[in-house]
Structure formats: C-alpha cells, structure tokens
Amino acid sequence: MDPETVVIIILNGMFYALSLFLITIGLNILYSFMRVLNIAHGGLYATGAFLTWALMNAAAKAGYPIYILWLCIPAGAFLVGLIGLVIEPLLFKRLYRLREEYSLLATFGLMLVFDDSLRMIFGGSPLSANQLYNWMGTLTILGKAYPSYNFVIYAFAIAVALGLWIFFFKTKMGRILRGTAQDREMSTCLGVNVSILYTETFFLAVFIAGLGGAIYLPATNAYSGMGFEPIVLSFAVMIIGGLGSLKGALVAASMIGLVRAFGIALIPELELAVVFLILIMTLIFRPRGLFGKKFTREEK
C-alpha cells in the first residue's frame, strides 16, 4: 500500500472518528453527570443534520451569500439545543431518579420517536446540502485530491474537545458540575441549583450532538435512520475509552475510526465486525476501558 493511500485512509478514519467523538462526548456527559444513558442522542444528532439541511436549503434557494450558509451550522445546532430545553424538563427530569435500566427504555422510546418524526417531516429519501463542501474545493495531499471541507471538521472537533476540557477543568461552572456529579446532596446544601445545572448541562450535550450532525451535513447527507449506527458505536467508544473520560473518548473514537477505515480498505466484508471485535477484546481484557476507573463492588 503506498503512503498516499495510507494517509488518505487515516484521514478518512479520523473523519469518521470525530463524528463518533462528538456524539459520544454528549452521551458521556449525560451519563457521567446525570446517570442517564440517552439512546436518543443519535436522534438529536440526526435532527441536527436535518434541521441544518432545511436552513441551508432555504438559504441557498433564497440566494443568500456563503457566510449565511456557514451560520446555518451553529443555527441548526442551536435549534437542537432548544429541543433539548423542551425535552429535559418534560421527560428527563423524571428519569434522573429512576433505575438506570428504566431510563434506558425511555430514551430508547424517545429515539424511536425522533427517528419516525424525522421520517414523517422530511420523508424517506436522503437529503443533501453540499454547497459549503463544494465551495471549499480540494487540497492536494501527496498527489491526491482531498476535500478541504474535511479539515474544517477536524479543526472544529479539536476545538470542541479543547473547549470542553477548558470548561470542565478550568471554569467555575465546570467544577461545580463535577462536584455535583460526585455528591448531589452536598451540592444542594452548598446552594447549587442542581435542577437548573442539569438543564444547562443537557443543553450543552445536546447542542454538541446537533452540531455534530450539522457540521457533517455538507460532507455527507441526511438520511433516515442515520442516528442508529453512531449510537451503538458510541457505546463501544464509551466502553473502550472508559466511562467519564474525555481523553478516553477521543482516543477510543480515533482507534475505532482508524480501524474501521483500514478494515474497509483492506477487507471490506468485515467493517463493523472489526469494531465489535475490539469491543469484545476490551470486555475480556480490560472491562473498565482504557482510562476508566476500576469498579467497586457496589457497581457490579
């Protein structure tokens, strides 16, 4: 295999990995802090893609300049965030106190609702809005053309990772969040309005998922059922990377993305099976994941 192809494969792998990362990180936040595993997160990712499509499509048809199209991306994500602000008090607030398995069933139901709703509203055919992608053209890397827009995605995902790291470890709100995750009662005693904190956190997690869908739209398209595959793989990322670890999510997502890309290039039949194989290996040899903490007896 020549070096050019290898580089392209790596770039493709990272391309996929970062979409996984964006979904996983939101999932991770919700689970680590609120103990809810939100299967519907995939649906929010898909909603981000579809809403952004609607905005971009309308903007392009109305003949708005390119920078408006760029703005559609955060706009679409923001709309998804707003949806989050609606479903959090309506549904998720009631799930926090339930056993984890029950909330899983409820978010599973929510995922189905999102998926079918998107199908009802946008129809069953894939929708594309490639204007930005085309506008950015291509770069030549080692003699091969590579879409420049993809680098926007890379830059973006890194920015998100950095931003979150700063938020959780360097800001006051981030610290309050981490403290509340450890001991909710204590936080309340210290005057933290946990309820509002949770709502804000929910918005953040959902916004990132929507942003993920939005930023990938120009490079791919929005299709019905697009939320499911990333979700299952995101769980794999969470397990392999270790619960509650930002670093782990990034590393595991990269790993899975790269393995998948090389897998597709070398042995196309295997694809997903390879990822699941890694998952199984992790379960056998290191159940807590790469960066997770050891389980105490209570958590078993």
Binding site: L98, L105, A106, G109, L110, L112, D115, D116
Partner: peptide, 13 residues
C-alpha cells in the same frame, strides 16, 4: 416505531 416509542415512555413514567 413512533407509537412504540411513545408507549415505552408512557409505561416507564
């Protein structure tokens, strides 16, 4: 799926 999803949420809550 939509109906199934809503029912799941309903029953859980």
């Amino acid at each position: 799926s939509f109906i199934l999803g809503l029912s799941a949420i309903f029953f859980v809550l």
